[in-house]
Design a binder for these strands. Structure first.
Lengths: 203, 203
DNA sequence: ATTATTTTTAACTTTTTAGTTAAACTTATT
DNA sequence: AATAAGTTTAACTAAAAAGTTAAAAATAAT
């Protein structure tokens, strides 16, 4: 009963996640989601009244997942370099398991900027900088990191991790042509990106 | 007559570009395009039989524009460092004028990977490497650039330039919250990204 | 002026898709 | 066994959007 409820509700949710992530809100079809879940449209609407409801549920879960990956890195008890390496290993690892999330999220956010305010509430850059300053006071002098350049640095780190997946279609196409494998390229990238950033910020 | 034809055909094409780039193929409406062009739907179909025809025309032009920006940089008579600075200035400059292209292109390519083969034909990485090796034989010893790491380096450069625009909605949201301006952030980025890369690849 | 071309008007068809409904059926609960 | 909840079936409505049509009006070409 309640067990069963959750089973099918989850089946629906997972199917919806797959379809929305692949096709986007506009491209997704309720019938397609029902098929993926192995049920019929009537039951789909029985659980989620409208496409919007379903989409919002999916979107918020996904957005939460991706952003939560960023935050706790700074709290680890590691040196700055180790944190950077840790971040790329974990974050790229997460994206390996969810390669289509970046493209999906970036696109839906660009189309619907209202969604962003909610997400941004959870990010407090001032606090982030405070943590960084406290934990790495002595270390920071070795690096070209100032309060002014933090946005540039943060977005650069995000870019190096996220972009290969956001542009996966093109990059894997080029890789294939060169006889390389996208998955290998990504595996190598965990270290390359970390080295790249550390080198770039070291005085 | 023929003059007029081109006028309205261009009007349509520009309107279609605007709408497709903003809404994507699935989200765009033919009626909306007609309105933007200041004409009616009948005339729109008179010039472009179907939505698909119109979209393909728009997509190919845009994709061509963006990729052409990458290639000719290497042919300039400049040092490697100067080329890197030149690239970020030019490429980010282009994206400043066309901020929505990255999100649009990445998304449509991910949804429709067949399109990619056409685009990739125009890129010849082997030739690119040959040019690089020839023009910078002596210089290259100063840098951590090998044939093996070229894909990593190239995608990193692309990432640093393109990602801020692909993620503009989020980044400008965060900037706003911090009292910074996205446009200033981008202006600064032309130099920051160049310095970042040069520092990262210098031995 | 006349003819040809472009453009508008406005109603129309067709297709696709979201969402509804009611009845029958199945499975779990008591 | 009886009741309730979950699920299917299949036909349906309503709305949105693509695409069509034919006739009238405006504009350009000869």
């Amino acid at each position: 009963m309640t067990e069963n409820d959750k089973q099918t509700e989850e089946k629906i949710f997972e199917a919806a996640t797959d379809v929305f992530v692949e096709k986007g809100m506009d491209g997704a079809r309720m019938q397609d989601i029902a098929n993926h879940a192995g049920i019929n449209k009537a039951l789909l609407h029985y659980y989620y009244r409208t496409k919007d409801h379903l989409f919002n549920a999916v979107f918020e879960k996904i957005a939460g997942q991706l952003f939560k990956k960023f935050a706790p890195v700074l709290d680890e008890n590691l040196s700055l370099e180790e944190k950077i390496r840790f971040f790329f290993r974990e974050h790229i690892g997460f994206l390996q398991r969810n390669p289509r999330l970046p493209s999906f999220l970036l696109n839906e956010l660009n189309r619907n900027p209202e969604r962003i305010k909610k997400l941004i509430q959870s990010i407090d850059i001032n606090k982030l900088w405070a943590t960084l300053e406290k934990q790495h006071k002595e270390e920071l002098v070795k690096y070209n990191i100032t309060r002014e350049t933090i946005p540039q640095l943060m977005t650069s780190i995000a870019a190096l991790s996220v972009f290969p997946f956001a542009a996966k279609a093109i990059i894997s196409g080029i890789m294939e042509k060169l006889g390389y494998d996208f998955d290998e390229y990504i595996e190598v990238r965990k270290k390359y990106a970390a080295d790249f950033v550390i080198k770039a910020i070291t005085k």
